[in-house]
C-alpha cells in the first residue's frame, strides 16, 4: 500500500515537472514551480529526510516564489508571456533515451538500507551517529553535537560555504544598488 502512495506521489511530481515546461506565462510557471516544491518536500519527508523536506519547503516553495514574484514586479505585463519554439526531434528522442539509460544504470546500485520507515535510520547513519554522539565532546570540546560537526569536523566546508554566500550577497547588493540610481 505504501508503495502505491510513493508511486502516486512520483507521478504527481513528474506531471508537475512536465507542466512547468508547458505553461504560457511566467506567473503561472512560478505557481507550478511552487507546487513542485511542495510535492518534492512531501517526497523527502516520506523518505525520512525531514531536514531536507523543511529546507525544500522554506527555500523552494517560500523564498524562491517570493523572489521570483519580486522579479516579476519589475517586468512589464507583456514581457511575462513565454513564446515556446517547437521541441526539436533530437530532444524528443534523446532525453527519454537518456532517462532509460539512467534507470538501467540505477539497477546496479546497492540495495536501499533497512528501516526506511524511520524505525532504524539505515545502516550507515546508525553506525556513524552513535560515534559522533559519544566521542565528539572528547575530540572537539564542543558541547553541542551539531555545532561540533558543523564547525569542527567540517570547518573548511563551512568556511568555504560562508565565502560563497558572502560573494553572492555582495553581488546582489551591487546589482540592486545600481538599479536604485
Amino acid at each position: 500500500m505504501m508503495e502505491f502512495f510513493e508511486i502516486a506521489l512520483l507521478i504527481l511530481l513528474i506531471t508537475t515537472a512536465v507542466g512547468i515546461s508547458r505553461v504560457r506565462n511566467l506567473i503561472s510557471a512560478v505557481l507550478v514551480l511552487a507546487c513542485y516544491s511542495f510535492l518534492m518536500a512531501a517526497v523527502w519527508a516520506q523518505l525520512g529526510a525531514v531536514d531536507v523536506a523543511f529546507v525544500e519547503a522554506v527555500v523552494g516553495a517560500g523564498l524562491a516564489t517570493v523572489l521570483f514574484l519580486l522579479t516579476l514586479f519589475r517586468a512589464r505585463a507583456q514581457d511575462t508571456q513565454i513564446r515556446r519554439a517547437r521541441t526539436p526531434l533530437v530532444a524528443l528522442l534523446g532525453l527519454p533515451l537518456l532517462g532509460f539509460l539512467l534507470l538501467y544504470a540505477a539497477v546496479d546500485l546497492p540495495p536501499y538500507p533497512d528501516g526506511r520507515d524511520g524505525q532504524d535510520l539505515g545502516k550507515a547513519s546508525t553506525r556513524v551517529a552513535a560515534e559522533y554522539l559519544q566521542k565528539s565532546y572528547q575530540k572537539t570540546e564542543t558541547p553541542n553535537v551539531v555545532t561540533a560537526v558543523l564547525m569542527d569536523y567540517r570547518a573548511f566546508d563551512t568556511l568555504i560555504e560562508t565565502g560563497v554566500i558572502f560573494t553572492a550577497g555582495i553581488a546582489c547588493a551591487l546589482l540592486l544598488r545600481d538599479r536604485a540610481k
Binding site: 500500500m1 502505491f4 502512495f5 502516486a8 506521489l9 504527481l12 506531471t15 508537475t16 507542466g19 508547458r22 505553461v23 505557481l31 507550478v32 507546487c35 510535492l39
Partner: peptide
C-alpha cells in the same frame, strides 16, 4: 493515498 489522489484534483487546476 487518499490525500495524494485529492492533490491530483488540485494539480489539474494548477496545470
Amino acid at each position: 493515498m487518499g490525500l495524494a489522489l485529492l492533490s491530483t484534483a488540485y494539480l489539474y487546476r494548477v496545470l
